[in-house]
């Protein structure tokens, strides 16, 4: 399935799909690695780099996700005896070819490329508890895929922290959490697009087990 890649796609778009080129292109793994570098070089030449470039962060997150062994599809197949499988299968009676990827309380393994917003810097926190007078502060963000999309943060009454070290920790942790939520929301748009939006019951859906 790995060979089923972008190359098939771009060749197919150009109407050049034939088995030889398909195999040839699919084997050229090196070019995958180059993609990112070329993109960044290109961005730099066009002066489109964000003011803070934090490639390593987004890459390391993606890689950490990718390396989580027990959450890979291939490995999940071996966990089919899991108790939750019966529930999963029940939910998809008509699907015979189903991989139970998510256990209850499971972690999504497939989100690495869902537009990951990496918040690079948060500044202009309120220094006092007075009414927020600062303009919207701008966060630099770098999605994993695609280019930069800035985020503005309306700082509400942010808790004060006297020690700057602990404040930095807090800010880093906050960024991580913001990203986790935004990324999960994006992922849910893919996973739940199948939901029945003609369901008339507002609370029934919650109550059902």
């Amino acid at each position: 399935m790995d060979k089923l890649g972008q190359e098939w796609v771009s060749a197919a778009v150009d109407g050049e799909v034939d088995n030889n080129t398909l195999a040839e292109l699919a084997n050229d793994i090196d070019s995958h690695e180059k993609w990112r570098d070329y993109q960044i070089i290109g961005d730099a030449m066009r002066n489109e780099l964000p003011s803070v470039l934090n490639i390593d962060l987004s890459m390391s997150i993606a890689e950490a996700i990718a390396q989580e062994p027990c959450h890979h599809m291939a490995d999940v197949k071996t966990e089919q005896i899991d108790r939750n499988v019966s529930a999963a299968n029940q939910s998809s009676k008509q699907q015979s070819k189903v991989v139970p990827l998510f256990k209850q309380f499971g972690q999504y393994a497939i989100a690495a490329s869902v537009a990951l917003v990496v918040v690079v810097s948060v500044d202009n926190y309120n220094q006092s508890n007075t009414v927020d007078t600062s303009p919207l502060s701008v966060l630099n963000t770098r999605p994993l895929v695609g280019s930069v999309s800035p985020v503005s943060l309306q700082t509400g009454s942010m808790q004060q922290s006297s020690a700057s070290a602990s404040k930095n920790d807090q800010v880093a942790d906050q960024r991580l959490r913001i990203n986790a939520y935004i990324q999960d929301h994006q992922l849910q748009q893919r996973l739940n697009s199948d939901m029945n939006i003609d369901d008339n019951s507002q609370t029934e859906a919650i109550q059902s087990q």
């Binding site: 399935m1 599809m73 939750n84 499988v85 529930a87 999963a88 029940q90 939910s91 998809s92 699907q95 070819k97 189903v98 991989v99 139970p100 990827l101 998510f102 256990k103 209850q104 499971g106 497939i110 996973l191």
Partner: peptide
């Protein structure tokens, strides 16, 4: 690839 499904 086979459809991934969320456990209920």
């Amino acid at each position: 690839p086979a459809v991934v499904v969320q456990a209920q």
